[in-house]
Design a protein around this nucleic acid. Sequence first.
DNA 1: TCTAAAACATGATATATGTCATCTTTTTTA
DNA 2: TAAAAAAGATGACATATATCATGTTTTAGA
Lengths: 228, 228
Amino acid sequence: MSKCEQCIVRQFNSLKELTREELQRVSACKTSKFIKKGETIFEENEHLDGVFCIKDGICKVSKMSANGRNQILNLVTKGSLLGERSLISDEVSNLKAVALEDMEVCFVPKSEILLDLQKNSNFSMSVLKGMAGNLKQADNLIVDMAQKTVKQRLAEALLYLHRNFNFTDDEFIDVNLSREDFADIIGAATESTIRLLSDFKKKGLILIKSKRIGILNELELEKVAKDF
Amino acid sequence: MSKCEQCIVRQFNSLKELTREELQRVSACKTSKFIKKGETIFEENEHLDGVFCIKDGICKVSKMSANGRNQILNLVTKGSLLGERSLISDEVSNLKAVALEDMEVCFVPKSEILLDLQKNSNFSMSVLKGMAGNLKQADNLIVDMAQKTVKQRLAEALLYLHRNFNFTDDEFIDVNLSREDFADIIGAATESTIRLLSDFKKKGLILIKSKRIGILNELELEKVAKDF
DNA sequence: TCTAAAACATGATATATGTCATCTTTTTTA
DNA sequence: TAAAAAAGATGACATATATCATGTTTTAGA
């Protein structure tokens, strides 16, 4: 199995703060696994005995609402850690993670992480900063969900995807999302989402090529998102 | 000025993890102030050079949305810390806090908190746990905002207030909220909020005595919140 | 206590969005 | 490759909620 010391991915998350010895210990106790597109990494209410470090691929992190609809809270990709919150609160997971494409993830047992959190203040400070960032992002999302229209939320989501998941040089978003996924991101009915996408396309804001979606007019989309 | 060592309030937040010496240092550098009902503790985008520890009173924590409407994200009361997130991320505040009644708060300078975070792993772990809890709460709120109707959100808010802010033995909620505040909590127009409150009253779910609101039928309100 | 201002309340109306039904296109699988 | 299944698209319709207007009650200030 490959070693953490040589893994570039850890540079993108709090594990970069670990000392050489700590990293060696992590490397020795971690396991690695491949997850196929559509498979679940962990379920809501599942007891996670550690954290996942995403080596490759992308997944959707969601939560079921009382009315039986799924809400996607985040798209998490290469370099991120998953399951930190549950580990720290010592609770079962409140979220579910499903692969949007084939993935490779490493699993680091809880005991090792907790030890490092206790011993290495650079590490714990980094985790704390990460969590603080997530909290700010969550606050922003609450405001958007509470105050923006579905149309505005869709425009925001498209812009977000365009800015964060546009890896190739064409205009298409490089995440394999169904219309239902879009609906679950913005918290709307699938039909409404489809209608609004068609509308955006008609207005020349986006490009639709069956499943692939590309942003054509970022400026105008921003106007829609901000309701001008 | 009173000493932190003798303050009961710190038992309710992460400061309880500080050692005697650390607490003495905090006590020596803290300042205390009284804030009148309606006054602002801190503004959005204000640079906070420390954290607030609420000794008495209650405030609303909110954020302005792009469309100029205010969204209340939290009601924070005696025993809580305010401003941790900004301190940790080393950013200006993303939120605003306004007193809903007369308050007494202590202000602890950033340098002292950062030092304790670095030196005392029990303290940093406690802050981390608090932040993890806030994050879970935020995730739940996102789902509610995205997926529930205004009516459901109002029912949820009333239940939340009833459970957390019902200090006396009558049925009334002990927080002085205007109808606009309610609207800002659930992310709806003030008129819609008023209409729904009247509706709940007509159905015997709540009691309205001018500004004071009391919960009469918790079970039925839960049904509304869950959409049965 | 009186008056002005703020908060609360309610009606009329417009509109955004959800729901249900049906059809078409794309993807998967046998 | 054909058939079946899933995903996407669109129309008709119902309804929740925002907006604007206006009136009433409560609160705060002189």
